[in-house]
Design a binder for these strands. Structure first.
Lengths: 108, 108
DNA sequence: TCTATATTTAACCATATGGTTAAATATAGA
DNA sequence: TCTATATTTAACCATATGGTTAAATATAGA
C-alpha cells in the first residue's frame, strides 16, 4: 500500500527519525525549534518535515507566521500492521516447525 | 542507525515487501521462483533481492548455479526496536495526560 | 567440449532524494 | 508603511533508486 511505502520511506532517514523523537513529548514544536537541533539549513529541515507530513506522521497547525508541528501516531498504523502480520506469519511457521520437532521427539 | 535506515528503506517498496512475503513460509526459494510472481525482468528482481540481502532481511545460500533465498527475521530487529520505543515513549506521554485528566476530575 | 540454464553485472535511462543558497511569502509589530 | 521574523519555494547539484536490455559468469549435463 501507498501509506506503507511513504511511512517506511519517511522513517528510513536518521534526520527524520530524530524529528519524530523531538515530537514524542506530545507537545507542539515550531519548525525553528526543530531546526535548532540539526546541523542543517532551515530549508533542509523544512523539506524533511514536509516528507513526514505527507507520510501522515506529522501534523501541522499554522498560527500566524509560525507553524506548529505534532506527532501523528496513526501515520504508523499501516506500516506496523504489515510488520506485525509478517511476524505473525513467521511465528506461525515456527509453530509448525515446533510441532514437527515435538512429534519427532514423541516417536523415539 | 545504519541498520534501521537500510531495513526500513528496503521495506518501503512494495515489490520487496512482496518478496519477503513469498519467503515467509520459511522454506528456501530460488531466485527464479521469486521472479515468476513479478511482472519484472529477472535482473530487476535480482537487484531487489540484493537490496533485501544487504539490509540483512534475506539470506542467500548458493548451491551450484542456483541461489536459494530465505527470510532473516533478525534483519528487522533494530527497526522494530526503534518503532516499539517510539510507541512506548508516546504512550508514556499519554499516561501523563491521563493522570492529568484524572487529577482534574478529582478536583471537581 | 558443447549447450542450456541460473544468475549477476554492466551500461544505460528517467526520476527521486537529500542537501545547498537565494528569493519569495506571510505575518507581527513599531 | 517599514522592518524583522518564520517559513516555504525555486533553482540547482550530486548521488541514489527502480527499471530496462545485453553481456558476462558459473555450473549442469550430454
Amino acid at each position: 500500500m501507498k501509506t506503507i511505502d511513504s511511512a517506511l520511506g519517511a522513517l528510513a532517514d536518521p534526520t527524520r527519525r530524530a524529528i519524530i523523537e523531538q515530537l514524542l513529548d506530545g507537545s507542539e514544536h515550531r519548525v525553528s525549534d526543530i531546526v535548532e537541533f540539526h546541523s542543517m539549513s532551515f530549508a533542509g529541515v523544512s523539506k524533511h518535515v514536509r516528507v513526514l507530513e505527507s507520510a501522515g506522521l506529522v501534523g501541522r497547525r499554522k498560527s500566524g507566521r509560525t507553524h506548529f508541528l505534532h506527532y501523528r501516531p496513526e501515520g504508523l498504523q499501516d506500516a506496523t500492521d504489515w510488520i506485525d502480520q509478517t511476524k505473525a506469519l513467521w511465528n506461525r511457521r515456527l509453530g509448525k516447525l515446533e510441532s514437527l520437532l515435538e512429534s519427532d521427539e514423541s516417536k523415539k
